[in-house]
Amino acid sequence: MNRQERTDVELVQAVLAGELEQFAELVERYEKLVFSFLLTRLNDLQEVEDIVQETFVKAFRHLASFDCERRFAAWLLTIARNLLIDSRRKAGRSIASTNLVNEVMLTDSAREAASQPSEVVVRRERFRSIVAMIQELPEELRTPFLLRVINELPYQEIAEVLDVPLQTVKNRIFKAREILREKRESL
């Protein structure tokens, strides 16, 4: 029996039955999804970390209320989204763009260590402009686009996670790419 093959619902049921540590597997599966969902919406990575943590803890506390007919990832993103709205309301501000981008690639990655300093600068500059362009996308386009590019999810899965029709997902991703292409041309 391959334990890794357990479905989300099976894991949820195992946690509810008392196998607390099985929740770690759900975290493992979806932490990056929640992280990238929040990444372009917040000011700094500390805030992203906090809301990722809150999202999973809240999911754990309310695990019994998870509707097994739904996708676990969709449920998580709903929680993350609500927490995000709460935190914005508390902070009384909307997303900023610059701080986050500066922070994201601050430390030296293995890849950058092997590169010329000038290449590193160019790469970071490029990344900065990409993220800035993405942050300007309307949210309805940004989220499916990020799920596609960062999380490399198939259209069908994005449609299920965002609870929108398949064709809508495709249209939004194409639209996002079109906008990004135009922005790139004007760079």
Binding site: E31, K32, L45, R126, V149, I150
Partner: peptide
Amino acid sequence: DDSLLREGVEEAFTRHRVSQRIMAQIRNE
């Protein structure tokens, strides 16, 4: 650009994972 975005986010994610913190909090509660 796609792959740079993926890599950049992956780098940030690697440094800002909170799975240990999540599980610690859950065990404590």
